[in-house]
């Protein structure tokens, strides 16, 4: 059981500023191995910024980030590169390279980091493609010709190319229809169970939060106000949190009454 509680991400006293606009101040957050964490909060609370700081795409103005138990501020370039390979990031619009096919997109990180032969490379990329539920014929399509749902799945495939233990997703279900979003959520859960992943997602989709995550980190007042399961979160009496979930709670209550 000790294995289960390894700390994957730890943020200590993080501060982020854009000019005079202070987004985070003294922000602390701890994410354990195997957790499925949603970062939620009103707009402008710096959810996506926080995600890109965890992904090492942006440095916080002060504070310490520990990934897999090691502080990244003291790391050399090579160590940082190794850390980066343990993190998969799915961007909101997919951010697939438009001049490459889906398969080539997935192959790119594997090829650049592992010197392996072409056939195995393609095999591994196909494996990732099918793991996310994409149809086989999508392999040779270009990102422009993919539908929204397929685009997101392809983006997850590329993020998983190197089998990272940590997967970050920026608004994974935004822009999908409810059925597509539900299918995407199911896929995330399957991947989480099968691949031993830790998930961190920024999302506004309350259905996603209920189905996918087991922990919700609520950003407000420039820090993480609370990290707890959604069932507790919706009953929280903190005014900011209450305001955010006010409608949602009503919705749930009605649904539960119906059941």
């Amino acid at each position: 059981m000790m294995e289960e509680h390894k700390v994957i991400v730890e943020l200590k006293q993080i501060a982020t500023r854009f000019g005079d606009n202070i987004v985070h101040e003294k922000l602390d957050l701890k994410i354990l191995e195997g957790e499925r964490v949603a970062l939620v909060g009103g707009s402008g609370t710096g959810k996506s910024v926080l995600l890109s700081e965890i992904a090492m795409l942006r440095e916080p103005d002060s504070g310490e980030i520990e990934l897999f138990g090691e502080p990244i501020t003291q790391m050399s370039g090579r160590e940082l590169l190794a850390q980066r390979q343990k993190i998969g990031m799915m961007f909101q619009q997919g951010a697939l390279f438009s001049s490459l096919t889906v398969l080539e997109n997935i192959m790119l990180p594997i090829r650049e980091h592992q010197h392996i032969s072409g056939s195995l490379l393609k095999d591994l990329a196909m494996l990732k493609l099918r793991l996310t539920g994409l149809p086989e014929h999508a392999a040779h399509l270009y990102p422009q010709s993919l539908s929204g749902g397929m685009l997101k799945r392809a983006a997850v495939s590329r993020a998983l190319a190197l089998d990272p233990p940590l997967l970050l997703l920026d608004e994974p279900t935004a822009g999908l229809d409810p059925a597509g979003a539900a299918a995407f959520d199911d896929m995330l859960l399957e991947l989480h169970a099968a691949l031993n992943l830790t998930l961190i997602l920024v999302t506004h989709d309350l259905d996603s939060i209920w189905t996918v995550t087991n922990q919700v980190a609520f950003l407000g007042e420039r820090r993480v106000l609370m990290k707890q399961p959604i069932e507790k979160m919706v009953k929280d009496t903190h005014p900011v949190i209450e305001a955010y979930f006010a409608n949602e709670r009503a919705k749930r209550a009605i649904r539960q009454e119906l059941i």
Binding site: L127, A139, H140, A194
Partner: peptide, 21 residues
Amino acid sequence: KEQRGLLELVREKVGPVPAQQ
């Protein structure tokens, strides 16, 4: 058990690259 599960999943999902046009 986990390794076996993973292997079974991967076994199910591996497949050849479809022929290109």
